[in-house]
């Protein structure tokens, strides 16, 4: 996989904040539904502040040039999508303790699995070899447009808990893949076989 070594500061800032769109949207959901929450508003503002501080520091000291500096902070930031969408589901299902524990366990399991089997997940994602990798790749046949359209129909028809659980599952799936992507920070020139 090619890793572009040269990169301008502006391009990095754009990339970072484009990657942060999903966590911020999930963060907005965790604040806004079912009622506006001031606590989660503060949490998301802290997250934005941390992102701004990181982009300034990284731009000044050129920390984004090496692969690890470029990939890992974006991965960490992106993984907040899973946290915020879990909060979204937790709040919409009535903030019960058992739900909180369950969601935390699912999230941690995704991150740990993503990190532990990072090479396998990347390989299966980009060029599936095993039965399960192919099964997941088959879902890609729906195409992003198809997925988004179902999301659109679901979001306007289904109840809040159902939408929130769909959002939770998709963001945890993406967190799993992004965490596995740390492998590419360690081996920037790795290519799927």
């Amino acid at each position: 996989m090619h890793f572009p070594k040269r990169m301008t500061v502006g391009a990095y800032i754009i990339t970072f904040w484009v990657a942060m769109i999903m966590p911020l949207v999930a963060g907005f959901c965790s604040i806004a539904f079912p009622t506006w929450s001031e606590f989660w508003e503060k949490v998301v503002l802290c997250f934005i502040l941390a992102g701004v501080i990181w982009t300034i520091l990284a731009s000044v000291f050129k920390w984004f040039i090496p692969p690890k500096g470029r990939i890992i902070p974006i991965t960490i930031g992106f993984n907040f999508t899973g946290i915020f969408s879990s909060v979204f589901l937790w709040r919409i299902t009535g903030e019960t303790l058992w739900m909180g524990i369950l969601l935390t366990v699912i999230y941690i399991a995704c991150i740990v699995t993503g990190y532990k089997y990072r090479k396998t997940i990347l390989q299966e994602g980009l060029a599936p070899k095993t039965q399960w990798g192919k099964r997941v790749a088959v879902l890609g046949g729906i195409s992003p447009v198809g997925f988004a359209f179902f999301g659109g129909v679901l979001g306007s028809n289904a109840g809040g808990a159902f939408v929130a659980s769909i959002v939770m599952v998709t963001s945890n799936f993406l967190c799993l893949y992004f965490t596995a992507n740390i492998y590419r920070a360690e081996n920037p020139d790795w290519e799927p076989k």
Partner: peptide, 15 residues
């Protein structure tokens, strides 16, 4: 994965 992101945005926007 792009599809999953699309599903996420489609659901969130219309919700």
């Amino acid at each position: 994965a792009v599809g999953a992101a699309g599903l996420f945005f489609g659901a969130v926007i219309s919700f």
